[in-house]
Design a protein around this nucleic acid. Structure first.
Lengths: 109, 109
DNA sequence: CTCTTCCCATCGAGAGGCGATGGAAAAGAA
DNA sequence: TTCTTTTCCATCGCCTCTCGATGGGAAGAG
């Protein structure tokens, strides 16, 4: 009966894009990084992560390439495309717009 | 091809509950108020609003009563229950938790 | 009498998050 | 050597939520 959402719906793409600004990463690493930066708050399950990455690939926001991880395992590395960088800007702005609006409601009553 | 979401998914219940703290309102009024307070940013369509209100009713967060609007029209007035007030607190806190985490990611890279 | 505004509500589509599931391969423990 | 843990990939099906389309009905303005 508990609805434990570890993620704010509609923000996952934005989060992934942002993390990838730093540089190429594999999926597992992205999830870990999000968790770490957010202080264990943002917990991206693999069944949310990989579909999201597929979306980003399909839209051309990211590119993927197979390689070896730091732990010597087969891993798929994702990289932000120029288009993805642009998209990040768009989504970020839109997000802030929404948050500002919501906060107004939460403060104004 | 444009996906113009006028709402951050998963926040509608919270917004409605918050608006109802002020007092009893009918559905149409709630939508108008959200739009006004948010500076026209939050545009709640009726096909999002009424299902949401049903949810809230079902969960016992709000109560409904038929009456007449300021414009002398048949309207259903929604009122926050004690349970709803409690729920508002929960959702609000959870929301802030999420936002804080997301902002960290957006700033920390 | 018609048009606009106000007010209710549902349906079906599409999207997105998530639990469950299923691999596979490396490293270390037993 | 065998077992378990950790890392890494990915999909399927369920469910929830948002939203465009649709369909009223009643008040007031023109």
């Amino acid at each position: 009966m508990e609805k434990n959402s570890e993620l704010l719906p509609g923000t996952l793409d934005l989060l992934i894009l942002k993390v990838l600004v730093r540089g190429t990463m594999h999926g597992y690493g992205i999830a870990q990084r999000l968790k770490a930066i957010s202080g264990e708050v943002l917990q991206v399950g693999e069944s949310s992560l990989y579909p999201a990455l597929q979306r980003l690939l399909l839209n051309g926001w990211v590119e993927a390439e197979w390689g070896a991880s730091e732990n010597n395992r087969r891993a798929r590395f994702y990289k932000l495309t120029p288009l993805g960088r642009k998209q990040l800007g768009v989504e970020r702005q839109e997000f802030q717009r929404m948050i500002t609006a919501i906060q107004k409601v939460l403060e104004t009553a």
